[in-house]
């Protein structure tokens, strides 16, 4: 029977809310297509960075001189735990529909996400003030700020979206539209963590290793 099947990426509501489950297939697949096009955007920025970080250093500092791997590691953990917390928030929505539990998980997710953005801004500050590495110093640095900045901007808009969803959960409760929006936000949030894997590997680790 189709109801027990998975219809879309992320948490499926089959079993606890068949009505929302049916409604979810179309909108979540549409959002999935958007996420794929977003991945293409990031791919182009990665390609630019890959070319620039080798050939575009000019007179400026190189990757190994400006990157702080400890900060990158902590940022990775923050985003990973944030993604995990959102997963548990979705389970609280699916099985218990408890506003308190969902809001608690959303707050934890958002707090970890905000800490991630804060740490990245601090990284930028340290790079610009202590390493003389502002975006205009070289093609490598322009590409670096563009790639990580686009990711940080995505995370920030995810935080705004999360705040809006928290208000909707309080005001409307767990109606079908609210659930579907939360499910799309979850996909967005998990996908940003997947993009970050690329950033910490190909930007930070490759930069220091090579």
């Amino acid at each position: 029977m189709s109801l027990s099947e998975r219809l879309h990426p992320g948490i499926n509501l089959a079993g606890t809310d068949p009505e929302s489950h049916e409604a979810a297939e179309e909108v979540l697949f549409g959002f999935w297509i958007f996420l794929m096009s977003d991945l293409v955007l990031f791919a182009v920025l990665f390609a630019t960075y890959a070319a620039m970080s080798v050939q575009g250093i000019a007179e400026g500092p190189g990757p190994a001189q400006v990157f702080d791997l400890t900060a990158a590691f902590v940022e990775t953990l923050l985003l990973l735990l944030s993604s995990f917390a959102f997963g548990f928030g979705m389970l609280a929505m699916k099985y218990r529909e408890s506003r308190r539990a969902v809001l608690g998980w959303l707050l934890l997710t958002g707090g970890l996400g905000a800490a991630f953005v804060g740490m990245e801004l601090h990284d930028y500050y340290v790079m610009i003030t202590q390493h003389a590495a502002p975006p205009q110093a070289s093609g490598f640095l322009s590409a670096y700020y563009l790639l990580t900045g686009t990711h940080a901007l995505h995370v920030s808009s995810g935080l705004v979206w999360m705040a809006i969803m928290a208000v909707q959960v309080v005001v409307f409760g767990f109606t079908t539209p609210v659930k579907l929006r939360l499910m799309r936000l979850a996909l967005f949030w998990h996908m940003l963590d997947v993009v970050w894997i690329g950033i910490f590997t190909f930007v930070y680790l490759f930069g220091v290793a090579s």
Binding site: E5, R6, P9, I11, W32, L187, D193, V194, I197
Partner: peptide, 18 residues
């Protein structure tokens, strides 16, 4: 790992479009 365990993408037939 992220796709499999967080986004729940697997090899089930009903799910294959994604």
């Amino acid at each position: 790992v992220h796709l499999r365990f967080f986004l729940h993408i697997d090899l089930q037939r009903s799910h294959r479009d994604d």
